[in-house]
């Protein structure tokens, strides 16, 4: 019952409720089919991305003789850790896994230690040269980082840093740093400046205001940035291969085994699985920050 006309409607015992408008909500056949098509497309694309991961996983968990068997079944006949263990016990694998973790951790620490202050500065202050610095950082992305490794290797030999995990971590930090700076900047922009100012008026100095307010609020984003950096280091192959001889990271070891020694197939498949497994976790943790991490686009 509406009072649209402005006249007073006397209360009535029976209220005329217009029938529900169903026509507009009722999906037409074409709409349903179109919607269905979208799902089919989305699922097909998902298959394209997931199938290879499934296949490398069953390869890694098939017995070695099945890896060489032909034709293979798409559904594994038997699951065993034999192949994975063969890889696991191959020379250098365990040590290089440890190396990868150490290099990744060092890279995360360096990148955040050096990059986060810069990101904070770009996010919080307006100062002369701010835009130029931002632009400079963006342009570093236009340089292929592959070419860093060769002169760095030469330098490292003279600095006694060749074949050290520190050296690899520094190279990885240099590669990650531009992204770390821009990503942390966008994280700190998300923490309103007024919050820190409020803390300052309530008795904090600048550093304490940062620790008490900005840090806890930026923490989830910084954690995602850390994982991003770790993933970059975990996956980096070229520099790690060039800058090390015996202290290989996992991808460097695998690459050199494949390229130089011609490692057997079970080794390769198990290696592929070992490299990929953490990515599932990385992306799962970071899925909410995907666009902040990788979607960074010039304003």
């Amino acid at each position: 019952m509406s009072a649209k006309t402005g006249t007073i409607n006397p209360p009535r015992s029976t209220v005329d409720v217009p029938p529900l408008n169903t026509a507009a909500n009722k999906p037409t056949l074409a709409k349903t089919l179109g919607r269905l098509g979208l799902y089919v497309a989305a699922i097909a694309i998902s298959m394209f991305f997931l199938c290879p991961i499934y296949l490398i996983t069953i390869s890694a968990f098939s017995p070695q003789k099945e890896i060489f068997a032909y034709p293979k079944a798409l559904i594994p006949q038997s699951l065993t850790a034999e192949t994975v263990l063969f890889f696991w016990n191959a020379t250098g694998v365990q040590a290089s896994l440890v190396n990868s973790v150490i290099v990744g951790t060092l890279t995360v620490i360096f990148a955040l230690l050096v990059g986060a202050p810069a990101g904070y500065s770009l996010a919080r202050f307006i100062f002369r040269g701010r835009d130029s610095y931002k632009l400079l950082i963006l342009t570093t992305r236009a340089f292929p980082i592959v070419i860093l490794s060769i002169p760095l290797a030469v330098n490292y030999i003279s600095w006694n840093m060749y074949d050290t995990l520190w050296g690899v971590a520094f190279a990885h930090t240099a590669m990650a740093l531009p992204t770390t700076i821009l990503v942390t900047a966008s994280i700190f922009i998300g923490v309103p400046r007024e919050l820190e100012e409020a803390a300052q008026t309530l008795g904090c100095n600048r550093a304490l205001a940062f620790i008490k307010v900005a840090m806890p609020l930026a923490l989830p984003g910084l954690a995602a940035a850390a994982i991003f950096t770790f993933a970059l280091s975990w996956n980096e192959t070229f520099a790690a291969t060039i800058l090390t001889q015996r202290n290989r990271t996992l991808p460097a070891l695998i690459l050199s085994q494949i390229a130089d020694v011609g490692a057997p197939l079970p080794y390769r498949f198990a290696a592929g699985f070992f490299l990929i497994a953490p990515s599932l976790l990385f992306i799962f943790i970071m899925r909410r920050y995907l666009f902040g991490m990788w979607g960074q686009v010039v304003k």
């Binding site: 100012e197 904090c204 100095n205 600048r206």
Partner: peptide, 20 residues
């Protein structure tokens, strides 16, 4: 003097209430 030494208190336009 920095804000903390001024015996002032401030209410911000956005309130700046700490969300955490």
């Amino acid at each position: 003097e920095p804000p903390r030494k001024r015996t002032i208190a401030m209410v911000f336009q956005s309130y700046a209430v700490f969300p955490h």
